[in-house]
């Protein structure tokens, strides 16, 4: 696995035992670092699975939470509703923003690059911690607008959180569309909007879907902002945007894991497992799409 360096006899760098030892230490160190990073990925997942499996019962999927016991149907459905809402809200806004930044914000009439402020704001927003966004959602939406713990407040906060990722992913995907495609579309006389829809967006589609899936994985695993905006609800989600709290899978994990009862612990572990499965499905799908499309792309990235 480790390629041996071919030492070339040279006056500039004479061989010595010390240099050789440093080189070996470096390689071992690099591989050890890699192991240190990869091992916990497996460990965390195995741990979540190992905690949930011994007490797993399928009824968790179809019964709702009662106090600290019962099942997780309400939380699973709530998370799915939230994901769907984020997909619609953040997906629309994020993709449109990415399209604008990549296609329309090029050079202004005066020749200066436009959209720099917008792009900077997008980047900085992705660095604001989710708990701060959640607190703002609580202060502005839940209490300020008197929406109460509600689906809409949670959706807005989660969307604001992931829009930067989607916008950035869309922009990157659009920039990787070969220039010849655009020129070809133009040469065929396509109107700009038609070319954008039928040629450019279609080519960039896998990249956009990938960023959407990653955004969904992030929002599905989020806890802190939801505690402030979605509250917690033990019934199945209701068709109401306002004044109606909603359950979600991270809540039982965060709340029940240190309750003094086994029943609560099992519920937390089950929720962790279901959450892990949902997030992994999203992430692995995204990864597969990336690999598939890169294989057929014109130029592979280094």
């Amino acid at each position: 696995m480790i390629r041996r360096t071919r030492y070339v006899a040279s006056e500039a760098f004479p061989r010595s035992r010390r240099r050789r030892a440093a080189d070996v230490a470096f390689r071992v160190g690099a591989l050890a670092a890699l192991a240190i990073v990869v091992a916990p990925v497996v460990w965390v997942m195995a741990d979540v699975v190992a905690r949930a499996i011994p007490h797993w019962r399928w009824s968790v999927l179809v019964t709702s939470t009662v106090g600290t016991g019962g099942g997780l149907e309400n939380a699973i459905l709530g998370t799915l509703v939230l994901l769907l809402g984020v997909l619609v809200l953040a997906g629309t806004v994020g993709i449109l923003a990415g399209v604008y930044l990549a296609e329309f914000a090029g050079l202004g009439r005066s020749g200066k690059p436009r959209g720099r402020l917008l792009r900077a704001a997008t980047e900085i927003l992705s660095g604001v911690p989710s708990i701060a966004l959640g607190l703002v959602g609580y202060l502005a939406l839940v209490t300020g607008f008197h929406w109460g713990y509600s689906l809409l407040a949670a959706l807005i906060v989660l969307s604001v959180m992931v829009i930067p990722y989607i916008a950035r992913g869309t922009e990157t995907a659009l920039r990787q569309v070969p220039t010849s495609y655009r020129e070809g579309a133009q040469a065929l006389g396509m109107p700009a909007g038609y070319a954008l829809r039928k040629v450019i967006l279609r080519t960039a589609f896998p990249g956009i879907v990938t960023s959407l899936l990653i955004a969904l994985a992030i929002s599905g695993g989020e806890t802190a902002p939801l505690l402030y905006t979605a509250g917690w609800f033990t019934g199945t989600p209701r068709a109401s945007l306002l004044h109606q709290p909603i359950g979600y899978l991270t809540y039982p994990v965060w709340t029940f894991w240190d309750y003094p009862s086994n029943e609560a612990h099992y519920l937390a572990f089950d929720a962790a497992l279901i959450l892990l499965v949902i997030v992994l499905v999203l992430l692995v799908t995204a990864r597969v799409i990336v690999n598939r499309t890169q294989r057929f792309a014109e130029s592979r990235r280094p």
């Binding site: 890699l34 990073v37 990869v38 916990p40 990925v41 497996v42 460990w43 965390v44 997942m45 741990d47 979540v48 905690r51 990653i214 994985a217 992030i218 599905g220 695993g221 989020e222 806890t223 991270t250 994990v253 965060w254 894991w257 240190d258 937390a268 962790a272 959450l275 892990l276 997030v279 992994l280 999203l282 992430l283 692995v284 990864r287």
Partner: peptide, 23 residues
């Protein structure tokens, strides 16, 4: 391995917290 690292970036922090606190 790169995919594994990217998956680590996506694992919900509540699960990493659970692992950190209990294991």
């Amino acid at each position: 391995l790169r995919s594994a690292i990217e998956i680590l970036a996506g694992v919900p922090s509540v699960l990493i917290g659970l692992w950190g606190a209990l294991t």
